[in-house]
Design a protein around this nucleic acid. Structure first.
Lengths: 99, 99
DNA sequence: AAATTAACTTTGCAATTCAAAGTACTATAA
DNA sequence: TTATAGTACTTTGAATTGCAAAGTTAATTT
């Protein structure tokens, strides 16, 4: 018997990291403030989950200044996109079996 | 902007509970040993997650004897099935936006 | 210099997860 | 009757994860 659950990616088992990735899958370069607002998080919390995704090399970071203010943006890497798609495939199979 | 992530059901954020439910969605009455084998868990670990699902009234329990041996079976309740479907809907929306 | 803003990092605590060990119940064997 | 075994737990303790709040850094504006 198959065990699709064991193909889950630990990096995406948390709702915040899943949220960050799902935003970055459809938006190129999203900045810290936008993510923070969209996900309604404290900045420490968001930063720590971003760090976890960065450690897996699932997202990359770009720091610059906009209107003389620091602005950090993130986007999903190729590796991250593929890993996320894999994870969604597992979920899709679970969904399919319930249709 | 919508926040689908916040509609996740905490009870299903764990891969084991998600696995148990996904098995019970397509199989009526599955016993402890089968679940344990399918999910490859220690019995203490499985028992604790089953307990959590039972506490939410997402599964019901039936104890009996088969061949003079105790046999405990579980199935998803109506409440559990609906909650799980809701959860899958959230995931489905995340998947859809990536197609 | 002082205050401000963005993006962190650190701290510390609470919740979650898990394996291992222990327990309860029933059955069967000695 | 004591012992052994099997199933399904419960308890224990430790590691991991998750989080808010407070502290920090760097550049900016006053």
């Amino acid at each position: 018997m198959e065990l699709p659950i064991n193909k889950f990616n630990k990096a995406f088992e948390n709702r915040i990291r899943l949220g960050v990735m799902s935003i970055l899958m459809v938006n190129d370069w999203v900045d810290f403030g936008t993510l923070k607002e969209m996900l309604d998080l404290t900045d420490g919390n968001l930063a720590s989950h971003i760090k976890a995704l960065e450690a897996e090399q699932y997202i990359e970071i770009n720091k610059r200044f906009i209107n003389k203010k620091p602005n950090t943006s993130y986007r999903a890497t190729f590796l991250g996109r593929n890993a996320f798609k894999e994870h969604l495939n597992v979920l899709e199979n679970i969904i399919k079996q319930n249709e």
